[in-house]
Design a protein around this nucleic acid. Structure first.
Length: 534
RNA sequence: GGGCCUGUAGCUCAGUCAGGUAGAGCAUCCGGCUUUUAACCGGACGGUCGCGGGUUCGAACCCCGUCAGGCCCGCCA
């Protein structure tokens, strides 16, 4: 059973109506890691719907959170907004300076600036959650009831947090963070509470009162989270392992939410996605790959597969190089399998059956739309990558794949080719996938060369000097260079690939060479001989 | 200190919740496709399931211990 179905089953035992929640603070550029949050929730929602449950899938945008610091991608001008809610400050412009004009004219906030492209990416990837913006919820009074309970039960909440998280809260700690005279949540000391007002004194020495029913502040995170569960009625939430650790915010939240008269949601802790060799993704360090960027390179199904095929507790290592290639090939393989046939196979061990069922689940969860039918193109990613690099026009790619004017390639394949071309142009294409002629051969290339190889190389150079410079003739010249000295054609290919591309295997050479000047090729072969002789 | 996760073929990992003959892909090698598209097709090679104990007719799987790696407990998913 797919992991999402397992969670859905647990939910089914609890009832028929479920609100599955996800939440992110849009404090910077979104990355693939954030996608795991949303997709994990999305996949549970799907599985729950398939199980016949009534599901509401929501995405809470934590735009009531304060700006923590001036991130590297921001101008120093942002220091005036530290502590201010990111839903209430201007978005950065090209230079990273606050764009006051856009803020006052279009109301584009810092949070929206990062959120909007992410929502676009979500649509592309087939995720359409109900969006709840936190700051607005405070301002419109959605938090009224829970905020009042939190303030009334300040002592009980303090006890829970101190006991469960084993950290000591300061004397003037209070379960409400008021906005100060400048609009910041930082450095404000609560001096008293009379519903609905929380009295405070800020770092500028100014005193004032915050009306908790009007969003003049917010609940601190550890209370804000269970408060949301309560007023929305969340029954299931997937969250990152940072929240799931012992003494973490889920541990305190599950107790606090009962003060609000709400049972804690079904939890699902997921591992982080790290960038291969570079550690965890982080918006502030710039160590990210955005979903938008990734969607330019591969079809959305492949990003879904990344999340679908790994269980949530499995850490994912990701990069836009070979990981993506393998993932894309894996997807094509899944598509071309005939599961019905595999499942009727007799003498199927339980193990084997589980494997097939998991593959079916992963594939089904990778669909952008539940009812979309798959178009299996049967063209592996690697192969398409090769064709895109060697063929001079799209028509030639289609011809090579057996399509014609009568039988046009499917739309999905055309889309994939276009993405492939972008990928090839980008910095993300791994070197081992890139086809390139090596103009300056090095001695390491020829360590495996013996007398036969050298002999063939000499003949090859002669053949290429004299043959007609077209695909057919070049195609003949390569194997002939070995056959004419009574050696296997295999050696000729080995020699040709090593000499011209610096590797022992490769794509069909003739069409590539035909695109290049003969003199350049001959010159390279001459250099090879020089290197070998030295 | 407390807790979580991971350890299975050369590599990436399924399989552990519901114990029943050790799996896939990649890589490698061999063969086929009347001289390789990094394609495709067929086959082969390859594992004391980290280690030690226990439960069981039977353990990769359950229990106890242990080693190694990664991570979280400061509002970064």
């Amino acid at each position: 059973m797919h992991w999402a179905d397992v969670t859905a089953q647990a939910l089914a035992h609890k009832g028929n109506k479920h609100i599955i929640s996800t939440g992110i603070t849009p404090s910077g550029e979104f990355h693939i890691g954030h996608l795991r949050e949303i997709l994990t929730g999305d996949m549970i929602s799907r599985a729950a719907k398939n199980a016949g449950l009534d599901v509401d899938f929501i995405f809470i945008v934590d735009d009531a959170d304060p700006l923590r610091k001036v991130y590297p991608f921001l101008d120093e001008e942002y220091s005036q907004f530290i502590g201010h809610q990111i839903g209430s400050i201007p978005a950065p412009d090209q230079q990273g300076k606050p764009d006051f004009e856009k803020f006052s004219k279009d109301g584009l906030s810092y949070a929206d600036y990062f959120l909007n492209p992410f929502l676009d990416a979500l649509r592309t990837i087939g995720v359409v959650p109900r969006i709840i913006k936190n700051m607005n919820s405070y301002r419109t009074g959605e938090f009224n009831e829970v905020s009042k309970i939190a303030c009334d039960k300040a002592q009980e909440i303090r006890e829970i947090i101190e006991r469960v998280s084993t950290r000591e809260l300061s004397k003037d700690w209070f379960p409400w963070s008021p906005l100060d005279s400048k609009g910041s949540l930082e450095g404000v000391v609560v001096t008293g509470y009379e519903y609905p007002l929380v009295h405070w004194k800020d770092s500028h020495g100014v005193e004032g009162s915050s009306d908790i029913t009007k969003g003049e502040g917010k609940l601190p995170w550890r209370i804000d989270w269970p408060a949301k569960w309560a007023w929305i009625g969340v029954t299931c939430e997937a969250f990152g392992k940072d929240h799931g650790a012992a003494g973490g915010s889920y541990a305190t939240g599950r107790e606090i939410c009962q003060l609000f008269g709400q049972q804690p949601p079904q939890p699902l802790t997921y591992e982080w996605i790290s960038l291969k060799g570079k550690g965890a993704m982080s918006s502030s360090s710039g160590n990210t790959i955005g979903p938008i960027e990734a969607l330019e390179l591969v079809p959305p199904e492949i990003l879904r597969l990344l999340i679908a095929q790994s269980k949530p507790n499995k850490a994912i290592e990701f990069d836009t190089g070979m990981s993506l290639v393998n993932l894309a090939d894996e997807y094509e393989r899944l598509l071309s399998r005939d599961f019905d046939k595999e499942l009727v196979e007799e003498e199927l061990s339980r193990r084997k059956r589980v494997q097939i069922e998991d593959a079916i689940g992963a594939l089904s969860m990778s669909k952008v739309s539940q009812d979309s039918t798959f178009e299996s193109s049967n063209v592996p990613f690697r192969h398409l990558c090769l064709l895109a690099q060697t063929k001079t026009s799209d028509e030639m790619v289609w011809k090579s794949l057996g399509y014609s004017n009568e039988q046009k390639p499917p739309h999905s394949l055309v889309d994939r080719l276009n993405k492939m071309k972008l990928w090839i142009k980008s910095k993300h294409l791994p070197e081992e996938m890139r086809i390139s002629i090596v103009d300056n051969p090095t001695s390491e290339t020829f360590t495996e060369f013996g007398d036969d190889e050298i002999k063939v190389l000499i003949v090859l150079k002669k053949e290429l000097e004299s043959c007609e410079w077209n695909i057919e003739e070049i195609g003949n010249a390569i194997p002939n260079s070995a056959k004419s000295v009574d050696l296997s054609a295999k050696i000729a290919y080995f020699v040709a690939y090593n000499s011209l591309m610096g590797r022992s295997r490769g794509p069909r050479l003739a069409p590539i060479l035909a695109e290049i000047d003969r003199e350049r090729i001959i010159k390279i072969l001459e250099k090879c001989l020089t290197v070998i002789n030295s």
